[in-house]
């Protein structure tokens, strides 16, 4: 464990050095995410000008939910996103070889090697928005619920990473993952809306097979409606099941890997 922490500390050092080499890009990224947050909030503000509720939530509740989503996205952009984007290239170019022969978990190395230091400021910004949204919430939330909410958001972040990787792993067999990546981006929007607006089999899929609703929306439901063991068990159970399924597919994928230019 200590060895992995030491390796990760080196990843951080290299990432911050690299980010400082492109200083303008560093600030452009901050500006880009600030605009993304503003556009997202404006979108919901416009909708709530025409309806008092959306999926049973009022504007204050959607603000907390959306801020939670910003928080998850910022962690994902900082810790995983660069690695997930470059992963198919590693497979297709054969550069994955270099990761497989190292004396550390190849999945760990591939998933967290590139820490996006230029997104780190956005993580601080997103955390600030989340704290503000919770602080201005007019109802009673309680410390325990808030702590559980933040913990569930962290589980949701991990879940988002697993879902992204599951969409990309077929690159070992298909050799081109851009179509699947586009679908991942497209369906990602389902996680940006309160899950109560969906119904029928779509809602079932969103809380089980492609559990995007468990990332930010269900944690917000726990925050507003109270902690129920069944719901917590469902979130943790689905996350664990999906991660185990991913590990199984990953091991099969590595066996199918044909090395350089596969």
């Amino acid at each position: 464990m200590r060895r992995y922490l030491r390796i990760y500390a080196n990843f951080l050092r290299f990432s911050f050095s690299r980010a400082m080499a492109f200083r303008l890009d560093f600030f452009f990224r901050v500006g880009m995410d600030a605009i993304w947050y503003a556009v997202h909030l404006a979108f919901f503000w416009l909708i709530y000008r025409h309806t008092p509720l959306l999926g049973g939530w009022n504007f204050d509740q959607v603000l907390v939910f959306t801020s939670g989503f910003f928080f998850i996205d910022a962690i994902n952009m900082t810790v995983f996103a660069n690695n997930i984007w470059s992963f198919p290239v590693l497979v297709n170019s054969g550069e994955l070889d270099a990761y497989l022969v190292r004396p550390v978990s190849s999945l760990f190395f591939i998933s967290v090697r590139d820490f996006a230091a230029n997104s780190f400021l956005n993580l601080i910004m997103a955390s600030g928005i989340l704290a503000w949204a919770i602080a201005r919430y007019p109802g009673e939330l309680g410390v325990v619920r808030v702590v559980v909410y933040v913990a569930l958001l962290l589980v949701g972040t991990f879940l988002g990473y697993v879902i992204s990787m599951l969409f990309l792993v077929p690159v070992f067999w298909m050799h081109n993952a851009s179509g699947l990546r586009e679908i991942r981006f497209a369906i990602g929007t389902y996680g940006e809306r309160p899950h109560q607006i969906f119904h029928g089999w779509v809602r079932t899929v969103l809380v089980t097979v492609v559990p995007l609703a468990l990332c930010a929306s269900v944690p917000a439901q726990v925050l507003f409606e109270g902690i129920t063991p069944a719901l917590l068990l469902h979130v943790v159970g689905v996350t664990a099941a999906l991660f185990l399924a991913f590990l199984w597919i990953w091991s099969r994928a590595l066996r199918a890997y044909a090395s350089a230019s596969s």
């Binding site: 909708i47 999926g55 699947l180 679908i183 607006i197 779509v202």
Partner: peptide, 24 residues
């Protein structure tokens, strides 16, 4: 994949979102 799935996924979101807005 990009064309068909991408479009219908987006279309589905719009349908669920706006039917919820009009209903509520």
């Amino acid at each position: 994949i990009n064309a068909v799935v991408g479009f219908f996924v987006q279309f589905g979101i719009a349908w669920f979102l706006w039917t919820a807005v009009y209903r509520e």
